[in-house]
């Protein structure tokens, strides 16, 4: 009997917490498809707000995807070989490098954005292009890619596999292509999902780095929250959810799979 009560109490509490997280999302979704949120759902269901958002903000949404995939490309090309180098080389220097590239996880995005602005703000062409935002996103997401790949390296004993391939005559570059990358694939995929998700949702850095011509999806969101009616802001949030939730689900599935192994 007492166990039952404890169970019911804990379940009730957990449901309450879940409601705190889920109810606002449901409110936002319903507001985004309601004709008039103030009058409630009986005023009718509509996609006009979604269409309006698409019309107003498709540039921002497009740019966000461009930046997200460009960030992914840079973190893959730079991060995957570096993860291999750091893992195989080991030693103090590697630890120092790893520590430094991980710092952007601890330092608030605002500080990094200020630092970039104060250093490169004077380079007009660069400052005004989307590449400036790309740089910020790269600095911020790089540690996720590098660490995700390094975690896999540590679990499959990549160093011995590398030596095995070398003993069979493969040159460093051949080994990297035939053995290192294929065996790092789970980490590369997990890191890629993470990079895309973080880049699409990044606001702290981006708000400081953007210009009127280089607005991203979250910058547009903040814009709409400040200046648009609630239904439009909600419809925009709804679009963001539709984009980000599949990525989150994929990431969660990955984590579960990794745990089972």
């Amino acid at each position: 009997m007492r166990d039952r009560l404890i169970f019911a109490g804990q379940l009730g509490f957990t449901l309450l917490v879940a409601a705190f997280l889920v109810v606002p999302v449901l409110l936002s979704i319903s507001a985004g498809i309601t004709v008039n949120y103030f009058r409630g759902i009986q005023s009718g269901v509509t996609l006009q707000w979604v269409a309006q958002v698409w019309g107003l903000y498709k540039g921002e949404i497009g740019l966000s995807f461009l930046i997200a995939f460009a960030t992914l490309a840079v973190t893959l090309v730079v991060g995957v070989p570096a993860a291999y180098g750091l893992h195989v080389r080991g030693g103090r220097l590697s630890r120092v490098i790893e520590e430094i590239i991980t710092l952007p996880l601890a330092i608030p995005g605002l500080a990094i954005a200020l630092a970039l602005l104060l250093t490169y703000g004077g380079f007009g062409g660069f400052r005004q292009s989307w590449l400036f935002i790309l740089v910020g996103h790269t600095v911020f997401t790089m540690p996720f890619m590098v660490r995700s790949v390094m975690a896999v390296f540590a679990s499959v004993d990549i160093k011995t596999l590398d030596e095995g391939a070398a003993s069979l005559g493969a040159s460093p570059w051949t080994r990297f292509c035939n053995v290192i990358v294929p065996n790092a694939l789970p980490g590369i995929l997990a890191g890629s999902l993470m990079v895309i998700t973080l880049s699409l949702g990044e606001f702290n850095l981006t708000w400081m780095l953007h210009t009127p011509l280089t607005k991203t999806l979250p910058v547009g969101l903040a814009d709409s929250y400040a200046s648009m009616r609630l239904e439009v802001a909600s419809a925009y949030t709804l679009i963001f959810f539709i984009m980000i939730v599949p990525l989150l689900v994929a990431m969660q599935m990955f984590a579960d799979k990794g745990e089972k192994q």
Partner: peptide, 22 residues
């Protein structure tokens, strides 16, 4: 070293130098 070089360059140019500037 060739594997590490791009990361070191990117990190120095876009993180270490800016933070020093800050």
């Amino acid at each position: 070293w060739i594997c590490l070089l791009p990361l070191v360059l990117v990190t120095v140019a876009f993180f270490v130098l800016p933070m020093a500037q800050l």
